[in-house]
Amino acid sequence: MREIAVRATLICVIGFIITGCENSFTPFAEKRVEILSINGFLDADVDTQFVRVAIIRNEIEQVASLNDSLSVELRDLNTAAVTAMTDSLVSLGDGERAHLFFTDIPILGDRDYRITATGPGGGTSAQQTTVPGRIAFARNTATNGQGTGQYVQTLTFANLPLRPESVDVVYTVLRNGTGDAIRVVIPYRDLMVQVPTISGYQLTVRLEQDRITVLSVLGLPIENGTTVLQNVSLEYALLSDEWRIPRNPNRLDFFASAASYVEEWTLPESVLDDMGYATP
């Protein structure tokens, strides 16, 4: 009995040695469907839109596949207007060539766009983006307050989930005597404060402190009282939600949109006088 057990064990070991070598394996799916990837974004601030579309490669060393039958259409989902984007072949930085599709139709804020690429085998890939629209914000009157004795003005952006890409307060001033309008841009993005109660952001414009910057840019002393402040404006650029990692990369494609907007207003003469601006 004991010998039988030992022999059986040895037979099993030899059997395993003979059968244990089989191990073929491929990490690639057997059925490869035609998949297209889309890279790019719609920018409401430029005249021409570019997106790059590629047929994915079966093997890592394979050169990008080019095919004249590749087509791309851009659909405005709000109007159902469809634009066929124009194909072009470009050479990239690494020397490879790629399909770059473009169109010059205007891209508008608060619109939904879908881009659909169709491959030579009929495979399609689609992506969608909502171009950010103008933000509604509340602006209080300029006050000489907050314990600083200096004029400030608070802007409140309710229901703004994502901090804008850029936020600048722009002062358009007239240099007295020349009549030239000069724009002085002061970055404010980093000064935006997230306010959970309104699910948005708040921004305090430091009007009187900014005046020092404006005069400095003009090369004038603080005591100067001849500069005319024509208006104040808020210029901001918004990105669609897909810019926020990992929102966009969760799909195959990197496709998003962007837009910029300007809001202008003027300050009361009494405030301008108090701050030391001249009245035209």
Partner: peptide, 25 residues
């Protein structure tokens, strides 16, 4: 189980710095 691959591509991350017209990805 493992994640089967269906292929490879190059992507251009949208971050304001990359340009799809030239960036190889």
């Amino acid at each position: 189980p493992f994640n089967e691959s269906v292929g490879f591509d190059t992507f251009v991350l949208i971050n304001g710095e990359n340009d799809v017209r030239t960036d190889p990805g």
